[in-house]
C-alpha cells in the first residue's frame, strides 16, 4: 500500500514539473525526478490519500468516460443557469436537500463532492459520513432517494469502478 502511495504522488509531481518546464532535457528531468522523489517521501509516506485508486486499464478507460460525462453535465448546467439568470422573473426555487452515497473511500467521496460543487446550480454544504447536504437552486422534490437518483447517480456509477 505504501509503495502505491509513493508512486502515485511521485507521478503527479513529475507531471506538474514537466508541464511547467516543457522540455525533455535529461538534466532537467533528473533534477525534477530528484525533487519529486524527495517531496513524495517527506510528505506522502504516511498519508493514505491515494491508496484506494485502482491502477488498471479499465480504470483508465472509466476515467476518460467520467471526464466526458462531467464536461457534458457542466455545459448543460451552465446553459440552465444562464436561462435562469437572464429571464426577467428570476425563476429560482432554492433549498437544501439531503442525499446518500454508497461510495466508501474518502477519495471517491472527495471527487464526488467536488463534481457536485463544480456544476452550477448545486453545491455541497456539509458532509457527514455518507450523507451529503446539498444546496440546490431548483428543488423539485425533497425525497432522499429521488434526489440521489437525479444528482448523484450519474457520477457514482463511474466512481465506483475507479476507487475501491
Amino acid at each position: 500500500m505504501k509503495t502505491k502511495n509513493l508512486i502515485v504522488s511521485f507521478l503527479v509531481l513529475m507531471i506538474a514539473w514537466l508541464l511547467l518546464n516543457w522540455t525533455i532535457d535529461p538534466v532537467n528531468i533528473v533534477i525534477g525526478a530528484a525533487i519529486s522523489l524527495f517531496l513524495s517521501v517527506v510528505f506522502c509516506s504516511n498519508c493514505d490519500l491515494f491508496t484506494s485508486i485502482n491502477l488498471t486499464p479499465k480504470a483508465f478507460a472509466y476515467t476518460f468516460m467520467y471526464l466526458v460525462v462531467f464536461i457534458v453535465e457542466l455545459i448543460k448546467a451552465n446553459i440552465d443557469v444562464t436561462k435562469r439568470v437572464l429571464s426577467p422573473s428570476l425563476p429560482i426555487n432554492p433549498g437544501i436537500v439531503k442525499v446518500k452515497t454508497k461510495l466508501k473511500s474518502k477519495m471517491a467521496r472527495l471527487i464526488l463532492a467536488d463534481s457536485i460543487t463544480l456544476t452550477p446550480g448545486t453545491f455541497t454544504l456539509q458532509v457527514e459520513g455518507d450523507t451529503f447536504y446539498i444546496h440546490w437552486i431548483n428543488v423539485d422534490n425533497e425525497d432522499v432517494e429521488k434526489v440521489t437518483e437525479e444528482l448523484v447517480a450519474k457520477f457514482e456509477k463511474y466512481l465506483e469502478v475507479l476507487y475501491d
Binding site: V81, I92, P94, F123, H135
Partner: peptide, 21 residues
C-alpha cells in the same frame, strides 16, 4: 447573477461557479 440573486448561497451558485467554465 452576482448582482441579481437574492441571497449569498444563490450568488455563489451563479457568481463564482458559472465563471469557472
Amino acid at each position: 447573477g452576482l448582482l441579481r440573486m437574492p441571497d449569498v448561497y444563490n450568488r455563489v451558485q451563479t457568481g463564482t461557479k458559472a465563471s469557472t467554465l
